[in-house]
């Protein structure tokens, strides 16, 4: 039926999140998070102003945000990245420019089936549009988050929308409570 890939051409500008169970090629500009379970390629001239998460990341463009690869990340010649770079395997070419923390996680590919039920229970019900995908990602991300070296660092990206959702929900509840008080 369709290509399981999104191609954002040179003149294409996305303001918002790009998510899904497919691969993405970015030659244009994305002002928002990119979080897919497929591969992400940011071409020369491509710009992303937020975190990028995917399986294999190949960067030739400019990124202001953290890069998370469940398999690998390659910063190629011409890449400009301000942000942290994390993947089991990382390649940085001569000519790639980087400001940020780099962490290869060896063994990160080994015990990926160990997603704890506890952490999954804490997660709000996934959105109707991407249920499978969200859960799967969490499993992939788990071993990395469990490594003690990461403890102090930011939690894996999938948690972020969960927090936001929670915050929004809390606010809504507060607003309703406030209204009922007035009455």
């Amino acid at each position: 039926m369709a290509n399981d890939v999104a191609i954002l051409g040179r003149s294409t500008h996305v303001r918002g999140r790009v998510t899904g169970a497919a691969s993405v090629e970015i030659a244009g500009r994305v002002d928002g998070e990119v979080d897919v379970s497929g591969d992400v390629t940011v071409e020369a001239g491509g710009l992303v102003s937020a975190n990028v998460t995917g399986r294999r990341l190949v960067i030739r463009g400019a990124i202001k945000g953290d890069l998370n690869g469940s398999e690998s990340i390659a910063l190629e010649d011409g890449a400009k990245v301000v942000g942290d770079v994390r993947a089991p395997r990382i390649a940085i070419a001569q000519g790639a420019l980087l400001r940020g923390y780099v962490q290869t996680a060896n063994g990160g590919s080994a015990p990926r089936a160990k997603a704890t039920t506890a952490s999954r229970g804490a997660v709000p019900p996934p959105r109707a549009s991407t249920p499978k995908h969200v859960e799967h990602k969490r499993e992939v991300e788990k071993p990395k988050a469990a490594a003690p070296a990461h403890k102090a660092k930011a939690p894996p990206p999938p948690v972020v929308p969960a927090l936001k959702k929670g915050a929004k929900g809390a606010r809504r509840v507060g607003a309703i409570a406030g209204m009922s008080k007035k009455r």
């Binding site: 039926m1 369709a2 290509n3 399981d4 890939v5 999104a6 191609i7 954002l8 051409g9 040179r10 003149s11 294409t12 500008h13 996305v14 303001r15 918002g16 999140r17 790009v18 998510t19 899904g20 169970a21 497919a22 691969s23 993405v24 030659a27 244009g28 928002g32 897919v36 497929g38 549009s129 991407t130």
Partner: peptide
């Protein structure tokens, strides 16, 4: 030159000349 594939969701605004 711009394809939003079947598995992809974009929450936000897209502008393009293509």
């Amino acid at each position: 030159s711009t394809v939003i594939g079947a598995g992809i969701t974009i929450d936000g605004e897209i502008t393009t000349d293509e």
